[in-house]
Design a protein around this nucleic acid. Structure first.
Lengths: 120, 120
DNA sequence: GTATTAGGTATGAAAAAAGATACTATTGCA
DNA sequence: TGCAATAGTATCTTTTTTCATACCTAATAC
């Protein structure tokens, strides 16, 4: 296959046309960002969760980055966004069924993170 | 705490002085790169694995990036590097105990990746 | 009419990650 | 002598990601 830009090659690796035979690639394409697992971990602990609550918890994430990451997770069917037509507005995010299926993964990863933290 | 550079803030988030109370942050600090889980997934399937084999499997990774990622995983105690004093040289990578504890995580993540792939 | 609120968008600049490329070492073999 | 093979390093450039900042929206209270 022709490879013109790096982005195109990336799409082969972690992108939309990812190798369906490699589940790890599929998974990383969806949740492989810097913040995504942190976001999902926070949402699963209190679901639904508001935008502002996420901001507070992920102290150092930027407003615009937070929006971007949430949009991607929504696009990929991992969480849903619900807007309440109030003023001031309220927006809640919660896991979809697919998102909930990530909970065992997050559990396992957290357990490992504790192990890893011990020897840090 | 004073925050001068982005790097310093990052170190608060995902870095060496990460919040030990947040296992997810610990975990992502170690295995959160773009290639790391792909590398580990490949190594766990055939352990030990040679440098050149990794290159072939992760078709699009650069030689120097592969080296860098492997060095970090070694530094973080997730895999060990064994050099065989032959010519041409042979270098094998294998999971440490800590690395092996990642196997359930990778299993869970792959299962999820399959689910996710279905609706892609 | 303007301040407040929560959430969002848009822009350009900065930083981090990854890439391309060229170089090294080793030694048996033609 | 020169080349092949494997693994690695060093340097510079490009790509991607994230940040900083400013601006937008809506209903309500003042």
């Amino acid at each position: 296959m022709k490879k013109d830009t790096i982005a195109q090659r990336q799409s082969l690796i972690l992108g939309k046309n990812a190798d369906f035979d490699n589940p790890m690639m599929n998974a990383l394409q969806a949740i492989g960002g810097k913040w995504k697992l942190l976001l999902l971990d926070s949402i699963r602990k209190e679901c639904p969760k508001r935008f502002g609550e996420l901001r507070k918890e992920l102290e150092y994430i930027t407003h615009s980055t937070l929006t971007a990451q949430l949009r991607e997770l929504e696009r990929d069917g991992i969480l849903v966004r619900e807007v309440f037509p109030e003023v001031p507005p309220r927006v809640e995010y919660k896991l979809t069924e697919l998102g909930k299926q990530l909970i065992p993964v997050m559990d396992a990863l957290c357990r490992w993170g504790e192990e890893y933290g011990k020897q840090l």
